[in-house]
Nucleic acid binder design. Structure first.
Lengths: 149, 149
DNA sequence: CATCGATTGTAGCCAAGGCTACACTTTGGA
DNA sequence: TCCAAAGTGTAGCCTTGGCTACAATCGATG
């Protein structure tokens, strides 16, 4: 779903809207990896290991799909694993997981702060968080501090 | 990217988290169609017609990609078109476009209300809006009314 | 120590959403 | 009127992220 090679060799006067949509698509591309990284960190933290079957179960996909995505995580340098040995995060993977987790918590907190019920906040945050830019995240943080602190 | 046939024939005790992620994936599946519907409505409203090339330009994709997605819109009963004649929305397509547009405006307004700068609000809303449930949308609306009204 | 169930891995299929390349209309201007 | 540019459509390829089916491995238990 990404660009094979390098797209748009000549794109004169690319409209701002196109840039917006493009960013949205790119965000979706990394969303899955982010979810996996966060989940793997979570599983290791709580149970000591992250097995493909557990990952699959938690994400609601088949184990084959999970394994395929884990392979992609490895390709991107975010995780390591050896056959029948469980999955581990690299330093980069850990960093990503930490960032993602912090962002997730912040998004949920923001949603609840504006009146979204807990369960809906959790559910929607899962999708929303991948599209929240740093600028927006900072604004969320400031809003919460202003309101609570 | 959807289920071919019907997935998970037996899913006993599907964990709530899996349901959450599943919903996120389903939301992404319809996100593109929503964007197209909204854009087509917009183009028709402002210029009287929606041509594949204009759509492609606004979305930052090749015209071939746009045409393929338009075909999918037609398959799903959201749009009509005849060769070399431009694209039109069905009643269902119009309804979708209206809903999407209203939601988009509400999300942008909410983001700005919590302090996100205008440009970032616009950009992020593009990705966020597809993951905002009705419950959350209602909460956004109430928050804005409370704060402005 | 053999074997059975669960886990893991592999292969192959599918649809979506990208792309380029090429062919065919349409249309406006010379 | 005719012809070239712009727009449209088709074909074919790729990657991602799903799936099922089958093979291989591990581990616990008899």
């Amino acid at each position: 779903m990404k660009d094979p090679g390098e797209a748009h060799e000549a794109m004169p006067a690319e409209p701002t809207q196109a840039r917006r949509f493009g960013k949205t698509r790119v965000a979706q591309a990394s969303a899955l990896l982010e979810d996996y990284a966060e989940l793997i960190a979570d599983l290791i933290a709580s149970g000591g290991e992250a097995r493909p079957t557990d990952i699959a179960r938690r994400l609601g996909v088949s184990h084959a799909t999970a394994i395929k995505t884990i392979a992609r995580l490895k390709r991107e340098g975010l995780a390591t694993s050896r056959p029948y040995r469980g999955v581990f995060l690299t330093a980069a993977g850990e960093a990503l997981a930490a960032r993602v987790k912090a962002r997730h918590l912040l998004v949920v907190a923001l949603l609840q702060a504006v009146g979204v019920p807990g369960e809906a906040a959790e559910q929607d945050a899962e999708g929303i968080e991948h599209h929240v830019s740093d600028v927006t995240l900072a604004a969320f943080s400031a809003f919460l501090k202003r309101r609570e602190g």
